[in-house]
Simulated assay, not measured.
Amino acid sequence: MRKQQLDRLNTFFLSTITLGVFALVATFLIYILVKGAPALSWEFLTSVSKAFEEGGGIGIQLFNSLYIMILTLLICIPISLGAGIYLAEYAKDTRTTRFFRMAIEVMSSLPSIVIGLFGYLLFVVKFDFGFSVIAGAFSLSLLNLSFLTRMVEDAIRSVDEAQRDGGLALGLGRFETIMKIVVPSAIPGIVTGVVLVAGRVFGEAAALIFSAGQSAPALDFTVWNPMNPASPLNIFRPAETLAVHIWKLNSEGLMPDGPLVAAGAGAVLVIIILLFNTLAKVLGNLLEKRLSR
């Protein structure tokens, strides 16, 4: 009886904590969405000509966030995929390997502001990229490489050893077995990691303040020549992202209706992050069901 009572007490205690956390998160999300709802409109999402005027939109900042996210993923995915495959399939359990794994874990826990300062010194100053899209993409790649590498390694390690043995029994080499059997089986976990990294990149602010910059120059969306300074695809132009825009509105107060615009931008950012996390879960489940048939 005492064990049953203790079990009920522990269950009640844990349930209360879970409900409390859920209520806290739900209250936060509802507050952000309700406060930002009055500012949301199609013009608000697409306007690119009224950066700091009353009723200004977030079209440029939204595009900058998407552009930097795509460039960051293009840098991170090949490197993380190669590093994750090596650590999971080829690396032996030596002192050097353990050191690299510890370094990856340390990198995963570094504050983004530290990565931003490092990116500023290396990419903005040393490589003379200036505050630019490419400097921001490289800085965010440093921030997320370790996280995505661990996700890829864990996804590959979760593949049943019998599948590797089956590939080798069919006469496939080790590399062919990894690329044709192991990696496809690990795709659900890899895709989940990629989508989560995309969400992290989209919502990042601290690292981009010191690398991509805090200004959003006027862009001509009819010019798609990457070498043109007014082109949206120019990687050497400053690029204020949505998260940085929110911080700037609340810290400088240059826009007459800045609090309302910041609330609307915050609501858009929260919605997009929720979509990224939902997409990661849905894609992971769909791919797992499809590949397990």
Rank of each mutant, 00 (worst) to 15 (best):
W42P: 00
L122H: 03
I17W: 08
E240S: 01
A239Y: 11
L71N: 03
Y86P: 02
L143S: 00
G258F: 13
E153R: 09
G253M: 03
I209N: 14
I104K: 00
T222M: 08
R101N: 15
N250D: 08
I77G: 02
R157F: 09
G130R: 00
A216R: 09
V48N: 12
S112M: 12
A218Q: 15
R237H: 09
V34G: 07
F131W: 07
T18I: 13
S185T: 06
T149I: 09
M151S: 13
F52T: 05
A206F: 10
V152F: 05
T94L: 08
E89Q: 07
L172A: 11
L287E: 04
L81I: 09
G36S: 04
F52V: 09
R95N: 12
E153D: 13
G266D: 04
V124C: 03
I30E: 01
S158Y: 06
G203M: 05
Y67F: 15
G189W: 04
V183S: 08
R2Y: 14
A83N: 08
I17F: 10
T222R: 08
M179I: 15
A218S: 13
L170W: 10
K3N: 11
A205M: 12
G171T: 15
L242Y: 03
Y67N: 01
S158W: 04
A169H: 04
M179H: 13
T72E: 01
S109Q: 12
K126M: 11
G253E: 05
A39S: 03
A39M: 10
L274F: 14
F131G: 06
L208I: 01
I115Y: 14
S108C: 10
I246S: 04
S158G: 11
I178T: 05
V114L: 09
I17M: 06
Q163A: 15
L9G: 09
S139R: 01
V182W: 03
V183L: 15
T46P: 06
L71A: 09
F138M: 01
D165Q: 13
L196H: 00
C76R: 00
I235P: 10
I156Q: 08
N10G: 07
A155D: 00
T27N: 06
V133I: 07
E89M: 03
T46G: 00
G189F: 06
L286D: 02
A218V: 14
L283P: 12
L286C: 01
E161S: 08
G136R: 00
N225L: 04
L233V: 08
L254S: 05
L219Q: 12
N10K: 15
A207W: 07
L279F: 13
V25I: 13
G116P: 03
T177M: 00
L279W: 06
L74S: 10
E288N: 06
D257W: 13
M1C: 11
K92M: 00
A207S: 10
V197N: 05
V201Y: 02
L283Q: 15
S15V: 07
S132T: 00
S146I: 03
P259K: 07
R8K: 15
E153P: 12
L148V: 03
L110T: 11
L33Y: 06
G84R: 05
L73Q: 14
G84H: 06
L148T: 04
L121G: 02
I17E: 02
Q214N: 13
L40H: 09
L219G: 04
I134L: 14
